[in-house]
Design a protein around this nucleic acid. Structure first.
Length: 509
RNA sequence: GCCCCCAUCGUCCAGCGGCCUAGGAUUCCACCCUUUCAAGGUGGCGACACGGGUUCGAAUCCCGUUGGGGGUGCCA
């Protein structure tokens, strides 16, 4: 059937905390697979744990995903034909499914409290026995206290899953503990909700983190129960939810992605610097850099390409070339990629991207929001001067003050190293005189004038240009000198040189 | 403890039995360019975890060891 050839995949995060790089990698690979094969990418929110799920977290995840320039075809906010897409709004369905499963004899009641179960597990472990809960060894519920509903998994035999990245993996049912599907308070758990929704929404391929690999056997077992005898369809109808497409079965393909770790091979965490996507935005990483870099964590197109845009990645993506080993997140390489991408931007585009780092959105406000005409043209003049010396957009903040603030502070080290050296005051006085008289206030004009000083003073370029650089930019490290001078108003440049002459004289005494 | 997964330069990947004296990227170092810092160019350092097999031949296949990771929840 034609309908089944079009994949349906989902990204289904639990909304607690921020979206971080590990989740983005999982979501991205799902998205890539959908786009590569003309499929559907579903953004579902799994907020069954009322204790941890927050609205704020959900919103920030959606924002981060959007910032990355990615979209979704069905899901929260935009809806779709198989909603709702927030699990908390599908509780009726999950309960209806549980009731039918129980009626069919697949579930059993376990009325031990969480504490009792935990104590039992500890005992088993101490005795060197596996703490596996099975129907045959669980004491019958008495009926007079709240009980959980557990799914009765097979007691023996094996199950083999063919994973797209891991190959064949086999488990022994005897080692699989019966999962709780319904808590003693009647609320559905992840194993129930996740599985039910995958089936109800026609998911064809499940791509997620390796941490969920061990959960796959019970999930497949459940998929089977749900689709057998139209159980899911009856439950859907009972709850007044949209029916499934008749061609759907249940997820048949799995892809478990390895973890992303820090450079120390430990689980990625705050200790490794940024993990939240918004943090990268704030630091001046381009969304396209993140997409490119993250796509290369555990995957490569196979032809040696590394710098790729989104469409190129979509075209080359395949689970066949996804690696099994955990990948370390290398900020240095990400940063190098980012620098290259910044250089690839047009000057106009870079100016737009730089604005949030100048208007106070991120960091100090050096320009008004929106910028004045004067500020805008100054920015446009600044862009070509800084473009090739930035790895991250936020670095513009080290260069920008000299161009947007009248009073600059002179860097003490630069003063010491440059202004307090013999000849500095002479060079500055000569520069002041020459620039005062300059008629053509342009890159070429300034260059010609300042170069002319070299012969006149019989001094080396370094001896002449460095003092002027410190005077005008405030530091011995700055964008190109002539262009910087030409970009500023003459009077401002002359004032700065004059101020620097005072400093140079003081140091010489 | 038990179950499962993983293992090529510091890091990310290529390699899928002979093309490998192991290739690219990144990092680091050197040199060139240069008025600073960059960018750019050139070159260099740097890895098949270990031990057994299989084979004419192994980074590639099998077994074991070691080392990492995940799971073992009324979290997801």
């Amino acid at each position: 059937m034609a309908a089944t050839s079009s994949p349906r995949v989902r990204f289904a995060p639990a909304p607690s905390g921020w979206l971080h790089v590990g989740s983005v990698r999982t979501a991205l690979f799902n998205w890539l697979h959908a786009r590569r094969h003309g499929g559907t990418f579903i953004f579902r929110i799994e907020d069954t744990d009322a204790e941890r799920a927050t609205e704020e977290s959900m919103n920030s995840m959606l924002e981060a995903w959007t910032w990355l320039g990615l979209d979704w075809d069905e899901g929260v906010r935009i809806g779709g034909p198989y909603g709702p897409y927030r699990q908390s709004e599908r509780g009726d369905l999950h309960r209806a499914v549980a009731r039918r499963l129980e009626e069919a004899g697949h579930l059993y009641r376990d009325d031990r409290t969480a504490e009792e179960t935990q104590a039992w597990r500890d005992e088993r472990r101490e005795a060197g026995l596996p703490p596996i809960t099975k129907r045959s060894t669980t004491p019958a519920a008495t009926g007079d206290r709240p009980a959980t509903l557990r799914l009765a998994l097979p007691e023996e035999g094996t199950i083999t899953v063919t994973d797209l990245v891991r190959g064949e993996v086999t488990w022994d049912w005897a080692h699989e503990s019966d999962p709780v599907l319904v808590r003693s308070d009647g609320s559905p758990t992840y194993p129930l909700a996740n599985t039910t929704d995958d089936v109800a929404q026609g998911v064809t391929l499940v791509c997620r983190g390796e941490d969920l690999l061990s959960v796959t056997p019970r999930q497949i077992f459940l998929y089977d129960l749900l689709t057998r005898d139209g159980l899911i369809d009856d439950a859907l109808e009972e709850c007044g939810l949209p029916p499934r497409d008749p061609s759907w079965t249940h997820p048949t393909e799995f892809a478990h992605l390895s973890m992303i770790v820090g450079m120390d091979r430990k689980k990625l965490s705050k200790r490794h610097g940024s993990v939240a996507i918004q943090e990268f935005e704030r630091q001046g990483f381009l969304p396209e850099t993140l997409i490119n870099y993250i796509s290369l964590l555990g995957w490569a197109p196979g032809d040696g390409r590394e710098r790729m845009d989104r469409d190129e990645i979509v075209e080359a993506f395949a689970f066949d070339n996804v690696g099994k080993a955990a990948a370390a997140f290398d900020v240095d390489k990400l940063t190098a990629f980012n620098g290259e991408r910044i250089r690839d931007l047009s000057e106009a585009e870079l100016a737009v991207r730089l604005l949030p780092f100048l208007d106070g959105t991120f960091g100090d406000a050096l320009v008004t929001s929106p910028p004045s005409h004067e500020q805008q043209s100054r920015l446009e003049g600044l862009v070509p001067l800084v473009q090739e010396r930035m790895q991250r957009l936020d670095e513009v903040q080290t260069y920008a003050p000299a161009f947007f603030v009248d009073d600059i502070e002179l860097d003490p080290t630069s003063v010491e190293k440059v202004l307090h050296k013999a000849g500095a005051a002479d060079a500055l006085e000569a520069a002041h005189r020459a620039l005062s008289a300059l008629e053509d206030w342009s890159d070429a004009g300034v260059e010609q004038t300042l170069r002319g000083l070299l012969e006149e003073l019989e001094m080396g370029a370094r001896k002449v240009f460095q003092p002027v650089r410190v005077a005008v930019s405030g530091s011995s490290v700055s964008p190109p000198l002539f262009e910087s001078v030409a970009l500023l108003p003459r009077q401002l440049v002359l004032d700065r040189i004059e101020a620097a002459i005072q400093v140079a004289r003081e140091g010489a005494v």
